[in-house]
Design a binder for these strands. Structure first.
Lengths: 144, 144
DNA sequence: TCCGTTGTAACTATAATGATTACATCGAGA
DNA sequence: TCTCGATGTAATCATTATAGTTACAACGGA
């Protein structure tokens, strides 16, 4: 199947870099760490900006977190870059046959279950702050 | 972003139909309730068969559940039709810069968090059996 | 044997993703 | 003020998953 795009992991990567070295974070620098094109980085930063997570000074730039590291959760980042129209990650086929007892009711029953499952996932994401994640990165790298 | 395909909801639809009226379940009949092409149905039934959830008699057909209704959970169905190579729904960008403290460690840290979130979702799916779901369908439709 | 059904292959259209080039614009510093 | 480095964004392209459709071989009960 189709997974989530790598936008999400890249967004977390970007925010971690900003948290650790706010000075030198140009899109070129970040792109080198992520190993992709600077435009990809700028696009994702644009989403993070729109979500109010970072502030960017145009021109000779500079990107800063707009909240504290412990105020940003993985759910915030997820919502910033992986937004479906209504937020539901589970698709349900529509326009089923209304004269069939299953076709008439499958959508509402199925959706209810999926909302519960998705909520469970999002709660997990909401429990992890960027602060925790960055401190784990520091541990692993030993330095910095 | 990209949602899960509608294969999943269609698979649940198919299994519900089989549970309710095992006799008349040809792919044409099911396709009419789902409102799609019979080939789509046959493809999905093929996946359910491969997962050991149903048994199909070729030729002048007939499709039957291979387990009890209360032995099949929404997680079983999910795994039958929405399988990613390694089962992970969250993608992580790879080949990051190993000389960067973030690039070198982001993948393992990120993956750990995502596995937890995904597990929470799958546990929810595992708690719902087809039996429950079908009984809710019956309630809603009043009849059958 | 006949006919309805399944099992698949092949093809098309659509959409999301990721990469890339190009360029207008901004703003700090010389 | 002018230059230069950086951002913001449009446009294009290749790749991939999904969904729909046609076509046809093969199966098996009546």
């Amino acid at each position: 199947m189709k997974k989530f795009s790598s936008r999400y992991s890249i967004a977390v990567h970007i925010l971690s870099l900003i948290a650790l070295s706010p000075a030198s974070c140009t899109s070129d620098f970040i792109a080198e760490s992520v190993n992709t094109n600077p435009v990809i980085i700028r696009r994702i930063i644009g989403m993070l900006k729109k979500a109010g997570l970072v502030h960017v000074r145009p021109g000779t730039g500079g990107t800063y977190l707009q909240k504290g590291l412990d105020e940003i959760t993985l759910l915030d980042v997820y919502r910033a870059v992986e937004v479906a129209d209504n937020g539901n990650i589970f698709n349900c086929h529509e326009e089923t046959n209304p004269r069939c007892p299953v076709g008439a009711n499958i959508e509402s029953v199925f959706r209810t279950k999926m909302v519960q499952a998705q909520s469970a996932m999002e709660q997990e994401l909401d429990h992890v702050t960027l602060k925790q994640l960055v401190s784990e990165l520091k541990e692993k790298s030993g330095s910095i």
